[in-house]
Design a binder for these strands. Structure first.
Lengths: 249, 249
DNA sequence: CGCCCATTTGATCGAAGTCAAGGAACGTGG
DNA sequence: CCACGTTCCTTGACTTCGATCAAATGGGCG
């Protein structure tokens, strides 16, 4: 949904062995740092610190005045906004290799929380800004990512403002499959994968309630469009039907 | 709502007189070009072309593969997304000095349309990319703007996903006032201004119908929170009441 | 003046929310 | 290994907010 594609595999060849720099990083290929090499990579590496997050833990600097930014190494995080009385809307999901934070901007008015255990590579905002300032290529890469994130947010605004519950669910299932499920052999064959989000989190992404999400999933199951083998697993049986439901009526 | 503040006044002093470059541009101070001076400004000026848009006219390059980008000089534009069956959601509003377009990104999946007559300063995307590539400061400035736009979109996702019709209207009135009305002498005194959007456009911004927008406005009028002097004019009588309604219940 | 448009108002309907209860899955400790 | 508690998910009954359908009102302009 946000930014570029996910890869959890290790890079091949000699990069596989841990070294003092980022050569053993699982997301090096796809993360923002992927634009760097040699000396630059070593310099950025010195500015970064790995950090583990437990399920439910929020990144401390989000919302505060002193802040940082980070790359997601593993796990999935949510970016969420809250109303004064506690209603929540998830405004973005962060997968491995995604970037979090807003260099050069004073405030960040959202909360970033790990949906499961996760690992991130954090930087002090000022350090990161200094680094970007002499690397136009990396600034450009971040700009490109940010435009992608913006387009994603805008598409979801259409979803939230104008689409029905069943359209939202269909869209979510397809999007999630494309993001984590990769591409199956046959373009329309059945595919099974685990949803990385609880029903509650799905509801918070789609602007619905848990009950509505559950009912819509049951409806899709009854219609033979999906199967629910148990746990968070989903099997998409009729991908084209789902696609038709996702846009239109 | 999007990006930086609006200024329609002319710059002071010698800049007031039209010259061959951008010295007479109404939005030079606040637009992205504001980061430029001297030689750079002249170079960018050579790449740009002014263009008038009539009310309802869409920017031709939006949605197409070959594209451009632009600064808004006057008027207000909408950025909108459509479902297959024609439902519309306005995902952004562009005021004078705002920037449109996504350099370094392949596709732009939204439509940009003038809400009234408008003027923009357009660039070929490739030209603009080339120009940015050697100006890290301007790339940074664009990045900053894009983060602001993203935060705005995310706040509106909370609005669309989790807030009631009355909260949406209250929020919209305050936001619009802050954007176009400027700040009044007394922080809480009554203020009058013209809404730059029709009821229909407001509905498309807020994910509601025309009728609901109208009814909510009437309700606010009856409650003595606002007055509707006629046309598109609104008077905010109890700004704090409106603020309270905008967030919470 | 009369037409065209935007807006308001009214009556009704339906999709999703709310409230409430029951069931399945999972981890922990006895 | 099982009993227990917790958390998540499903299902049911009812309510409500906003959408829809329809009509009336008002304002600007040729």
């Amino acid at each position: 949904m946000l930014g570029s594609r996910t890869t959890l595999d290790w890079p091949d060849g000699e990069e596989r062995f841990p070294t003092s720099v980022c050569m053993d990083c699982a997301v090096r290929r796809d993360s923002l740092c992927g634009t760097l090499a040699g000396e630059d990579l070593i310099m950025l590496h010195k500015l970064g610190r790995r950090r583990r997050l437990r399920r439910g833990e929020s990144i401390a600097w989000a919302g505060e005045e002193s802040r940082g930014c980070a790359n997601v190494l593993s796990g999935i995080l949510k970016v969420s906004a809250l109303t004064a009385d506690g209603r929540e809307q998830i405004v973005g999901l962060l997968y491995p290799s995604d970037f979090v934070g807003q260099p050069f901007v004073g405030s960040f008015e959202f909360t970033v929380t790990a949906l499961g255990d996760a690992e991130i590579c954090t930087f002090r905002k000022s350090d990161f800004e200094g680094f970007l300032s002499t690397r136009n290529g990396m600034t450009q890469a971040l700009l490109r990512r940010t435009f992608d994130t913006l387009s994603d947010a805008r598409k979801r605004m259409l979803l939230l403002g104008r689409q029905s519950a069943s359209e939202r669910i269909a869209d979510f299932l397809l999007q999630t499959f494309e993001r984590i499920g990769g591409y199956s052999a046959s373009a329309n064959g059945p595919v099974t994968f685990d949803l990385p989000l609880s029903r509650g989190a799905i509801a918070d992404v789609l602007g619905l309630t848990i009950e509505t999400v559950s009912r819509q999933m049951t409806k899709l199951k009854m219609a033979g469009v999906i199967a629910l083998p148990g746990g968070r697993a989903v099997t998409i049986l009729k991908r084209d039907a789902l696609r038709r439901m996702a846009d239109a009526a």
